[in-house]
Amino acid sequence: MNALRVWSLSVLFAAGCATAPAPRETPPIPDAAALDGEMKRAMAATGAKGLALAVIDDGRVVATRAHGWRNAQGEPLRTDTVMYGASITKTVFAYLVAQLADEARLDLDTSIERYLDRPLPDYADEDRYSTWSHLTGDSRWKAITPRILLTHSAGFANFGFLEPDGKLRIHFAPGSRYAYSGDGIILMQFVLERGLGLDVGTELQQRVFDRLGMRNTSMTWRPDFAHNLADGWTAEGGVEPHDERSKVRAAGSMDTTIDDLSRFAAALVRGEGLSPQAFAAMTAPRLPITTRSQFPTLQAELPEAARRKDLAAGLGLVVFEGPQGPAFFKGGHNESTGNTLVCVSRGRRCVLLLANDVRAEAAFPRLVRFVLGDAGVPWGWEYGPKTFWDGR
């Protein structure tokens, strides 16, 4: 996306909020006892067995808390318990790509064709990546850039294997609209590994996990995780064993802890490890989001008048303008995991929630509001029709 396009989006955001009241004062951060009490209330109301929470204020971790169980044996969930990062992995990966762009290792707005030694559909199919050969005959892949992949606008479904015939395809002109895609993130990983000769797992370990002191975080399973590992609970209350992922998948293979991931969240909201330009590339509005909800990914766009004007894609993030000013967030989810990260630029404040019980998601809006006040998070877009716990 060129500079004029980014400037135009920023102007639209400002215009959309021009008549809004001035940003509200940020409320004080609740103390540890208040956080513990609210977490316990949320778990009791939703039936969730395990929940971890971190608070960042002025770009610093000020609290990490964990309650409940890590497994069906009733062993306690702790702040150093290894949990599944799910799709927050995508944000950590986008941070890596932003660093590489900072170093001029790649250009966010150059076609991925430049970085590959042969046409994308000519690469042999591998189970680690998607099936690029399905794109044979569709030259639109040449219009795909790193920025398009990280703003979920390549035109892919979430994953090609979810298509009716199981084949990856491009549904619309790359860069023209948002449609969440794990395969788009995996293609970015492919470009780094095959095009630039990088090992994404190694790069993340050295540039992010080691640098930030994230000692219990990895893109693949480590045997030492086994002694303090979180299994998960489904919406029906069934127990799901923790998946021991053996392959680096930038779309979602990260194992981490609330202690560790809070360090990343704090570094991200204060822009550590990125130039001001790279930080803006991640957290500024890049592409309007025009759908009613995030899933299904290829749903029809809303009429102009029905769209939330302040909602847009950043790089590996969703950005919005709330009552407290500019903010961003990213969620992560599977059948037994519910995660979310919400950050407000003013005051460099964040709430990070990791739950090894997907039922806890019903309490996320209440918990985020309890810590940050009203941030304007687009929960309805993130989750679609869902009943949330209101605290009563």
Rank of each mutant, 00 (worst) to 15 (best):
F172Q: 10
R215S: 14
F172Y: 15
V208I: 15
D260H: 03
S262A: 15
R207N: 11
A173I: 08
E203S: 14
L192E: 12
H242C: 02
T256W: 00
A179Q: 11
A265Q: 00
L261R: 00
R211K: 14
W233Y: 07
S246C: 07
S218R: 04
E236V: 02
A235H: 08
A250G: 06
D243A: 13
D231E: 04
Y180W: 02
T220F: 03
W233K: 03
T257P: 10
K247V: 14
N228V: 05
M188A: 14
H227R: 13
H227C: 02
G237H: 11
E193I: 11
N228D: 15
L212A: 09
V208H: 07
D183G: 05
V239P: 04
T217W: 05
M254K: 00
G195A: 06
H227M: 01
D243Q: 13
D259E: 13
G232C: 00
R207I: 09
V248Y: 09
S181H: 07
L187T: 14
S176D: 12
M188D: 02
Y178K: 13
G201R: 09
A267V: 12
G252P: 09
G184S: 03
Q205H: 13
S253M: 01
L212T: 11
M188E: 13
D243C: 09
G238I: 00
K247L: 12
T234N: 03
Y180H: 02
D260R: 01
D255L: 10
F264N: 08
A265M: 05
G184I: 06
A265T: 08
F190T: 11
V191D: 10
T256P: 03
T234K: 01
E240L: 13
T234S: 15
G175N: 01
Q189A: 13
G184C: 04
G252N: 09
R215N: 14
L198C: 08
T256E: 03
D259I: 02
E240G: 01
D199S: 15
R177S: 12
Y178T: 14
L229W: 06
E244H: 15
F225A: 08
A251S: 11
L212P: 12
L229D: 04
R207A: 12
G197R: 07
T234C: 00
V248Q: 10
